[in-house]
Structure formats: C-alpha cells, structure tokens
Design a protein around this nucleic acid. Sequence first.
DNA 1: AGTCATGTCTACCAGATGGTAGACAGTCAT
DNA 2: ATGACTGTCTACCATCTGGTAGACATGACT
Lengths: 198, 198
Amino acid sequence: MTRRGKTREAILEASVDLFGNRGVSAVSLDDIAGVVGVAKQTVLYWFPSKEELLDAVLEQTALELATVIEAAVRAAPDDPLQRVEAVLRAVFRPAVRRPALLGLVREVSRLSPAHAERLTLQVQPFVRRATDYLREQMAAGRLRTADPGLMIALAYATVTGIATEPEALRAVQWPATQSGLRRLRTELIDFVLAALRP
Amino acid sequence: MTRRGKTREAILEASVDLFGNRGVSAVSLDDIAGVVGVAKQTVLYWFPSKEELLDAVLEQTALELATVIEAAVRAAPDDPLQRVEAVLRAVFRPAVRRPALLGLVREVSRLSPAHAERLTLQVQPFVRRATDYLREQMAAGRLRTADPGLMIALAYATVTGIATEPEALRAVQWPATQSGLRRLRTELIDFVLAALRP
DNA sequence: AGTCATGTCTACCAGATGGTAGACAGTCAT
DNA sequence: ATGACTGTCTACCATCTGGTAGACATGACT
C-alpha cells in the first residue's frame, strides 16, 4: 500500500491538533498513533523521534500561518489600518477553526531554546518588514505613535490569547454560536484597530 | 521539626512556578520535590495526589491575583480609564516577576473541564461586577461602546499573552533590561487604554 | 524467480511517573 | 516512660513513554 505520503500528512495534522490543544508534553506518540489509526512504530518510521516530529510540526504550522498572512497583506490596500484588518480577518478563520495552530505557536515559549530560536529566526524577516512598515506609517501620522515592534507583539498577544483560551470567553459567557463567532471577529478587529489608530 | 505549614507553602510556591512555566503535564512530582529539597513522598503527604496539588495551586493563584486586582480597584479613582490603568499597573509587577502566575491561568484551558469550571465559577462575581461597571461607563460615554464582557476578555488576553510569551518579545527584539520592562509597562497600558477609549 | 525498497506491524526494553506501604525520628500529652 | 501523632524518608510497584529490533507483506526492477 504505497499511498504516497498520506500517512505522513495524517500524522502531521493530528500532531498539530494534539500538540496545540493539550501541549506537547501531554501528548504521547501512542496518542498520535491512536488518532491516526496506526501503530506507534509507524509514527516513528516517518519521524525518527518525537523531537523531529515536533520540528516538522512547528515548521509546517509557521509556514501555513505565514502563507495566510502574506496573502492577506498582498491583497489589502496600502492603508495600514486596512492592512491590519485584512490580516486579522485572514488569521481569524484558521484561529477559531483550529485553535491548535496558534496554540502551538504559543507553546513555543515552553519548548527548548533551540526550537524557540529556530522559529524566531524563521519569523525574523516578516517582523522586520512589518516594523519598518509600521514605523513609516506612524511617521506619516496614519498610526498611533509607539514602538512598532511592541505594537506587533501586543496585537499578536491579543489575537493569540483570545483564540487559544476558550475558557476566557466562557468566563465572560460569550456564546459559542456561529453568530457569536462573527461578532467576536468584528469586536476583536475593533479592539485592535482602536489600539492602533492615531 | 514541626515547622508549621512551611513545607506545604514551599511546595505550593514551587508548583506554581513549575506548572506555570513548563505546563502541568511536563512537571513531575519528583521535579517539584527536587526544587523544594524534599522527597517525593513528602509532596504526596501534603497533597494526596498530583490532581489535588493542582487544585490547591490553582485556588491559591486565583486568590493571589484577585487580591491584587481588588486592592488596585479600590485604591483607584472612579474614572474607568484610570481604574483600568491602576489594575494593569498592579498586575504588571507580579506578571513579569512571576510569569508563571498568569501562565498557570492560561494553562487552565488545557486542563480538565472540571478544573476550568471551578475557576470560572470562582471568577464569576468579579467578572459580573466588572461588566456591569463597564456597561455603565460606556453608557456615560466614558468608554468606547462595545460588548463589555468581550472587552474584558480581550484586555485579559493582551496582558496575559504578552506576559507569558517571552518569545514574542524576543521575536521583536525587545530588550529584557530593567528600563525595557518599565517601557513595556507604559506601552502596554497605552495600547489597552487606546483600545478602550471612546 | 529473485532481489531490493517501502511501509506497517508485533515484541520488547529501559527509564520515568504517579502512587502505596511502611519504617523511623522527633514532639507532645498523659 | 509510654503511646499517639506528625512529618519525613526509603523501598517498591504498576503503568506509561520514547525508542529499538526485527518480522512480514507488497510492489518495483532486473
């Protein structure tokens, strides 16, 4: 049954969800194998160790998110607020449909410094371009003046936090319905844009 | 050596840090015992199981944070923006000095629903009072009009996110110096207040 | 047909983990 | 002094976990 890399993909997908939702250390290879419907050794066949599986998962996640964001930025008009809104909209869908994606990114802070550094380097060019852009726009008076890097970090924290902590929403009794989600999106965008507006 | 609950306190404190920083499942009882300088069985003497230790840790953390916030709210003047600023200032110190505190709260979303629900109920009265207050102030035009509950969740997400993800700050090359922290605090406050202002 | 590569499996192992049982040493009330 | 209580420890144990070794099946190449 040489069905190409189908098994491999399935393992990656299941790993993103499990790692992102429960945390890396709370997930065993058996758990992953169980979800995929395969023996543990098959997981270890495709990824020689949990460590390397994690590497692959992180890389793919970063790539997925980067692609989504990149596309949103390209498609949006030049106005910074509209661009930010476009990015937020683009990120919102995967964020709420698969909170594990952002949960995984959040998880990075508790992994080994090596993982963290790798991901940091991977994001570096995006961050640099974004900060430069924000700095320009601040100088042009189209954004509130602040440290551009920190502004990115804060906006990121807001989005990631709200997407990965369903309990926070439950605590304020936010409805988990479809319309609740739509409303959440507009309010999230309003919140961040209000924070960025000059 | 009957030194009261000293050992118990030490275990709780070490557990907050370890659970909050590394995640609950990544911390073994041996780890905790090692930090406290005691045998594992001593940990299990004070808390009959890891589960119950976690319960105690969560409850104490919630209490600590609630106390800090409560005091800040009481001391601040009636203006909502000033109150929010006071709370942010009050929370910032423990947040950056012991990121584990907020990290633990963040961890709740990946624990059992029972834990989550307990904490949710514990926070309920605070949330209710806060939403009522925000609603009033919005009606009076002193805050941007939005869903008050969601506003709380978003502000919480921003603060918790920035405090518990040192890697996000490193990614934008924020200096981890003393003055960097002070500056972070003022920028964080500016960001949130800008998001709340009418 | 025979050889090799690929993908999956079962069987197993060493170490870690949560938890149990019970010994041992102080302290305190009688 | 004695016995009960408290707090800590050592010695184990069953289970889980990441990982190894190697068998087995399928198909591709020669």
